[in-house]
Computed example of a mutant assay.
Amino acid sequence: MHRTRRIGLPGPDENFEAIYLDDQGVEQRVPWGWLPEVVEALDRPVRSFPSYRGQRNFPGWYWSATVGRRVGFESWVERDHLVALDFDPSVTGIVSQPFWLLWPGESKTRRHAPDFLVRLDNDAVLVLDSRPLELIEEVDREAFAVTDQACGLLGWRYAVWDRLDPVMVANQRWLAGYRHPRCFDPQVAGRLLAAFEKPRALMDGAELAGDPLGTLPVLYHLLWRRELVTDLALVLSHRTTVQTAPSNDRLAMVGERNG
């Protein structure tokens, strides 16, 4: 069981508090306004991901290329959102179930743990809940509205994400299978980037760069890295038109990888 240590006292206008886990696994309870001061410490779930026989949702763990470790999810919708976040180059950090938000209810203290806290490359923070819109109930609407209000006080963005476009989801999940750095080969990558300087069909470029058995994993890794680009709103296939990313973007991404 986690130990809870309460830090500080709420100010006179403080309606919200937060609980998070520190690097020792100790629950820290702080005034809501303190949360930006400890945002770097929010790197582990504040609660577990239960799994049991007959469960209707599908929890699991996803290895994130962005943070280099596993991030938990509690449903396939959350998993799809997690892959999309991992694929987004503006995302620098992802934490699932990052904190409990506490606020006074009519008869007792209410609490809600958002699904994700996302740090962006412009130092902005996005707090997310993943929920198909048709499954949102009145109690959820209240929790989401309170979370939106609380995040606004901190200058953080808050959003509730519905299911994503199924074609985009399928394409991103396919590319995510090649997200690990082990799929990168610098010599093959160089040939692929040269082959796709002019837009061409995916398989044509793969064959131009060598044996597709060796070039395709690198090609998909480069698509994941966005060093090669295509329209992922369309079904990914051997006929998909692929080209190199604009040179400035590609150089920046190479620098990030080698930095």
Rank of each mutant, 00 (worst) to 15 (best):
A18N: 04
A18V: 01
I19R: 14
I19E: 14
I19A: 15
I19H: 12
Y20S: 11
Y20K: 10
Y20I: 01
L21A: 12
L21V: 01
L21W: 08
D22M: 04
D22Y: 05
D22V: 06
D23E: 15
Q24H: 15
Q24L: 15
G25R: 03
G25L: 01
G25A: 03
G25I: 00
G25N: 00
V26A: 14
V26P: 04
V26G: 11
V26Y: 09
V26D: 15
V26I: 14
E27Y: 09
E27S: 13
Q28H: 03
R29I: 07
V30I: 15
V30Y: 06
P31F: 00
P31Q: 08
W32Y: 03
W32P: 07
W32S: 00
W32T: 02
G33P: 09
G33Q: 08
W34T: 13
W34M: 13
W34S: 14
L35W: 06
L35Q: 04
L35N: 00
P36F: 06
P36C: 06
E37P: 00
E37A: 13
E37N: 12
E37R: 13
E37C: 10
V38D: 12
V38G: 00
V38N: 05
V39A: 10
V39L: 04
E40P: 09
E40Y: 10
A41I: 04
A41Q: 13
L42D: 01
D43Q: 11
D43H: 03
D43T: 08
D43G: 11
D43W: 08
R44L: 10
P45D: 06
P45H: 09
P45L: 07
V46W: 10
V46Y: 07
R47D: 01
R47K: 06
R47Q: 00
S48E: 15
S48G: 15
F49W: 09
F49Q: 00
F49S: 08
F49P: 02
F49L: 12
S51F: 08
Y52T: 02
Y52A: 10
Y52M: 00
R53L: 14
R53H: 09
Q55A: 10
Q55P: 02
R56M: 11
R56A: 07
N57I: 07
F58M: 13
F58S: 14
F58R: 14
P59F: 05
P59C: 04
P59V: 03
G60E: 08
G60Q: 04
G60Y: 03
W61R: 15
W61H: 12
W61D: 08
W61E: 14
W61M: 14
W61L: 15
W61C: 09
Y62S: 06
W63N: 13
W63S: 14
W63I: 03
S64T: 05
S64L: 06
A65P: 00
A65W: 02
A65F: 02
T66L: 11
T66K: 06
V67Y: 01
V67S: 01
V67K: 09
V67C: 10
G68P: 07
G68Y: 04
R70C: 05
G72M: 02
F73P: 04
F73I: 03
E74G: 03
E74D: 11
E74V: 07
E74F: 01
E74H: 08
E74A: 10
S75K: 06
S75H: 02
S75L: 09
W76C: 00
W76S: 10
V77F: 01
V77W: 01
E78R: 03
E78D: 00
